[in-house]
């Protein structure tokens, strides 16, 4: 937090992420990146960890920020910062899954995640939340990632950019994810009741 103070107040409070990234590219001043890390690291971690595990998510996040420095020359005025960061992180995650052979390719529905986030029921505050986590973990990777992105507030267009698929495909993936989630949750709730 102290490091943030190195920047004039308008840099941290008024500059958009996109502008901060452009400033970093122009000046190579790491304090701009620090601002971006503070702004986006938590949500990025939450997105990644729900598709992997805490250790891998931490590793992927770290790699993503370093990759962002490496690939800064690809970033231009037309880009949006957050989707760009997520695209980098997602690609790293997929690379890692491929390296660990944790992806099963099944035709159009391409990617299934074989390793789900561990659910520790003791930590759960409610049965409902526990069931939700279990249901989420049963979704296919491609359905879950689109749903999580939407729930994090990304637009269809942005999700389409991150996952590299047309908007229609993304829309149907999200619909499928919600339907599946609903079915699983209803079934599980009925069992509990």
């Amino acid at each position: 937090m102290l490091k943030l103070l190195k920047l004039p107040f308008w840099q941290t409070s008024q500059v958009s992420s996109h502008d901060a990234m452009l400033k970093f590219i122009q000046t190579q001043d790491a304090s701009w990146l620090e601002t971006l890390v503070h702004q986006h690291q938590n949500s990025l971690y939450k997105f990644i960890v729900q598709q992997s595990n805490p250790d891998l998510a931490a590793d992927i996040c770290q790699q993503a920020w370093l990759k962002l420095i490496e690939k800064q020359y690809l970033y231009s005025a037309e880009h949006e910062f957050k989707p760009w960061l997520y695209t980098i992180a997602r690609n790293l995650l997929l690379d890692e899954f491929r390296r660990q052979n944790k992806l099963i390719l099944t035709g159009d529905e391409a990617i299934q995640q074989a390793d789900f986030i561990e659910v520790n029921n003791e930590e759960l505050e409610s049965v409902e939340l526990g069931l939700y986590r279990q249901a989420l973990s049963k979704l296919a990777f491609i359905h879950k990632e689109s749903l999580l992105l939407q729930l994090q507030g990304f637009s269809l267009n942005q999700i389409s950019e991150i996952v590299g698929e047309p908007q229609e495909t993304v829309k149907s993936r999200i619909r499928y994810a919600k339907q599946t989630l609903k079915q699983i949750l209803l079934t599980e709730l009925n069992k509990v009741q």
């Binding site: 490091k3 890390v37 690291q41 971690y45 960890v49 998510a57 931490a58």
Partner: peptide
């Protein structure tokens, strides 16, 4: 979901 407290600091250091 609570990331490791040091994660952000580690990332900033690496960056």
């Amino acid at each position: 979901i609570k990331p490791d407290k040091n994660l952000t600091e580690n990332i900033i250091r690496s960056v």
